[in-house]
Design a binder for these strands. Structure first.
Lengths: 145, 145
DNA sequence: ATTTTAATGAGACTAATTAACAACAATATT
DNA sequence: AATATTGTTGTTAATTAGTCTCATTAAAAT
């Protein structure tokens, strides 16, 4: 096991403990899966990826665990509007939003400090306690133009 | 019929004509429904709202018409991540994004010229031809805090 | 008015997700 | 360490949102 995995195992354990939830092998495997590829994964993909690695976890557990991870800010939900939710590891120090090509589905990540600033202003002005956001730009990528 | 409705009837007719599509009472009724309340409506709501007003249109037609209206930029799709699509009249002169309370579901509209500017810059930098965007801020509103 | 062809309605169907519940396993209690 | 407790899991069934098919109907072109 690599160092990063050990660290993340402890992180998962401590969060489960704090929430009064139990540490299980299924939760660990799903969390590993999401950690390994920080890309935009949907529930079915995660389910099959585990299967292919010989790790048998039920679909329901995948959904339940993803839910729990989202609630605890371990992963972020990403909804590009195609009817299924995608998820990715929430690296607080590498926050980003998404540019999506409506022709080929390509996803490019972006981050803007300025947009972040204005978002916080807007939330403040409207007396909202900002929790998270979702910001997608849809267009045609260079290759598809 | 109010003046605005007449104007919009002509607008619908002309768009259908340009696209080589037919003008039907169902399309008119669905368009009226979306015009009347510029709020955030989902397909099912529109379907039932028409039913309640004694206007019988099938679900499939509601979906098909909404689709057509989105494609022709008459309405905008709004996806707040709860698994169903919402739609609203696309008033080009009153573009806005959304602040959503995760506790009560309240939706507050906002607009920022600055964010708009940075969005265009990001698209340009990545050589995307920007078509549209979706920008939601999720948080807890004043009442729910 | 008749013909052509697109649009509609009804309901079957699909995909994604959730719920119910019995069996099981991780912790707490003794 | 043994047992009780209670959360978690897998299975299956249900739900929800949206799509598809196809016979019927209605615009619009002739």
């Amino acid at each position: 096991m690599r160092l990063i995995e050990i660290a993340c195992k402890e992180r998962l354990k401590s969060i489960l403990h704090n929430e009064g939830l139990r540490y299980t092998s299924q939760r660990q495997e799903i969390w590993n899966e999401l950690l390994e590829s920080k890309e935009h994964r949907d529930a079915e993909e995660i389910y099959y990826s585990l299967m292919n690695r010989g790790i048998q976890v039920s679909r329901a557990t995948v959904y339940r665990t993803i839910d729990m991870l989202v609630k605890n800010n371990m992963i972020e939900k990403l909804d590009i509007g195609d009817g299924k939710a995608r998820f990715e590891y929430n690296d607080k120090y590498k926050h980003h939003d998404h540019l999506i090509c409506t022709a080929c589905g390509k996803i490019v990540e972006f981050y803007s400090k300025n947009i972040d600033k204005y978002q916080r202003e807007i939330a403040k002005k409207n007396k909202f306690e900002l929790l998270h956001h979702s910001h997608h730009l849809f267009g045609i990528c260079e290759d598809c133009q």
